[in-house]
Structures are given as C-alpha cells and as structure tokens.
Design a binder for these strands. Structure first.
Lengths: 157, 157
DNA sequence: GCTGTTCATTTGACTAGTTCAAAACAACGG
DNA sequence: CCGTTGTTTTGAACTAGTCAAATGAACAGC
C-alpha cells in the first residue's frame, strides 16, 4: 500500500477530498469500523464532518471497489479496506467483534452450491459465528461467580 | 410434519395460541417470509393481528428452535421453519428472492476456518449472492431493448 | 366445568441506522 | 483563474425493529 490514498482515489475516478482521505485513514487504522466509529474517528482530522457525508463517502468507496461493506445480522454495517481477496469473517455473538479469516478451503471454497436452483452465483459470503477470546474469558469468570453465589445462597444444582 | 402445530408448540413448552398457529401456517406456505409478509398473511386467519404480536411470536418460535431467522444484508429479516439441517441460502441481488441450498461440501463444510483467531466457532453461515432465474431473464430482455435503442438512436458500440 | 396463575397479546410510544433531496461548496481541466 | 461537475452539507424523513404497561387468554388444578 505505498501508493497514496489520493492516488488510489484518482485511479478510481474519484475526486480527492478531505472527507475521503479522513475516512480512508480511519479505515486503515480500524479494519472493521461501523459508520459511527468512522464519523468519530474522522473528526480528529475534520471536526465538522457529518454522518451523512461519511455515508456518502463510504458509498462512493464501496461503489468503486476501494472498500467493502459487511453487514453481520443484528449489527450496524461495517466497512473494511481489504477487498478482492475473498476472505471471510468471524463474528462474536456477544460483543460483535469481527476478525478476518482467509478462505477456508482452497481458492473459492463455497462458491459452488450443490444445486443452484436457477441462480447464477457471483459471490459466496461466509460468516463464522462464535465467541471471541475476551468474551470466553468473561463468560468463564461469570460462571465462577454464579457457582460461588449458589454456594452462598445454598441453592442446589 | 404430521404432528400438528399445536403439538409442536406444546412440546417446545409454548402455549397454543391463535397468533402462533396463524404465523406457523404462513411460514409453512411461504418458506422465507419477512415480518410484514407474515403479518399480512396471518391476518387472513386473524384480522386484528398486530405487527408487534408477530414479532413476539417469531421471537418465541426462534428461541425454542421452531423457526430460524435469517438476515441477508440490506433486507429485512426473513423467517423459515426449516431448522436443524444446516442448510444455506441463495439470495438474488436484484429482487431479494431466497432459495435453500443443501450444505455445499460434505456434512459441515465451512465449519472450520483455517485460523480461528481465538474464536470458538459454533455456526458457519453461508450466503450465495447472485441473480435468480427471473431476474436473469429480465436483465436479458433489458439488454436487448438497449441494443435496439442504440441502433435506433445511431449510437455506436 | 370453573378458577386462578402465568404467559401471551395488545396498544402505544419510541429508537437506531440509514436514506433522500435541495442548496452551498470545492476539485480540477482548460 | 474560471466554469463545470462532482461532493459535501444541511435538514428532514423513513423503515425495521424494540420497550413497557395494561389487557386478555391458555391451561393446570380442583
């Protein structure tokens, strides 16, 4: 990524503007940011930036392929700069944390459903749901507390 | 599915109520219905049914495992009765149509990301994005129209 | 069959996240 | 430096879904 943001924007046919550069900076620093996080982050460089502008910038970036939008069920949309490498995501059920996973099996793993029912498939999106390291630790600590509580209260198993 | 809805509800520890039976009927008839469709459909049997009630019923059904909630990016949530068989979905980018696909490769195909980054994964969700048969036909018809238009207008390729 | 408890539905207001439209503004080719 | 055209801004609106309090219905026990 040695070519500058400005260069990449121009290559994509977009004008180089301050909101766009700020949003790109935030996305580079936080790989899976939601719109609100991006607004807050980008205001460090551009304090008057409005949410609507960020939505506009993100839509522009996504439409030219500089960014990608991911929408885990039940959470606001997230944006990332890693595009074109067909990777997937791990999502934590309790805290919403997202991590990247490289393609699970071979080159385009799930791109061939067994029966496409007349559909022409152009992308396979995989989301792995589970619990992140931090939330596992938290849950373990909680269950210890519960046990202690049961003992103190005299509740039986 | 020869056991009645009433029976299944009771087995799951839920009371048998008219809204629940109506919602189950609609879901059986339309395998991937959104909340609004379900409200409209269920009103055939229960005209005074409110959206909030349907949300409540759906949450109850999902929580006991009688229904499953799927949320394709950019569309309202859909609900289906087919549960516990780890199947996936084809989603049409233009019209939002959804079709079921049986698990692509073997038993639990994508359930093992190459590097889980400390996550404990409990489910892999796969969405195949593409174009359904109807929308392919529509797009083909459109492109023919455009060609004719270009010829009439004298626009060159 | 009747009664009471508990769960479900109803009603109503409310929120988050996102989109739309019109006007002011800024990038960049000439 | 100027004009065009694409961006940002401002403001409002919209959709899908959630929350809470009050009414009502299901079903276990009698």
């Amino acid at each position: 990524m040695e070519t500058t943001w400005a260069h990449q924007l121009r290559e994509a046919g977009l004008r180089v503007t301050r909101p766009r550069l700020s949003v790109l900076d935030v996305l580079a620093a936080r790989p899976h940011a939601d719109a609100e996080t991006i607004v807050t982050g980008a205001r460090a460089q551009h304090p008057t930036l409005s949410p609507q502008t960020v939505y506009g910038v993100l839509e522009a970036l996504v439409s030219v392929g500089l960014a990608r939008r991911i929408e885990p069920a039940g959470a606001p949309a997230l944006f990332e700069l890693r595009v074109g490498d067909n990777h997937h995501h791990l999502v934590c059920r309790s805290c919403g944390a997202v991590a990247d996973v490289d393609c699970a099996v071979g080159a385009a793993p799930c791109l061939t459903p067994s029966d496409a029912a007349g559909f022409v498939v152009d992308e396979a999106e995989v989301v792995f749901w589970g619990s992140c390291g931090a939330c596992q630790a938290k849950a373990a600590a909680q269950s210890v507390q519960f046990e202690e509580h049961e003992i103190r209260e005299g509740a039986s198993a």
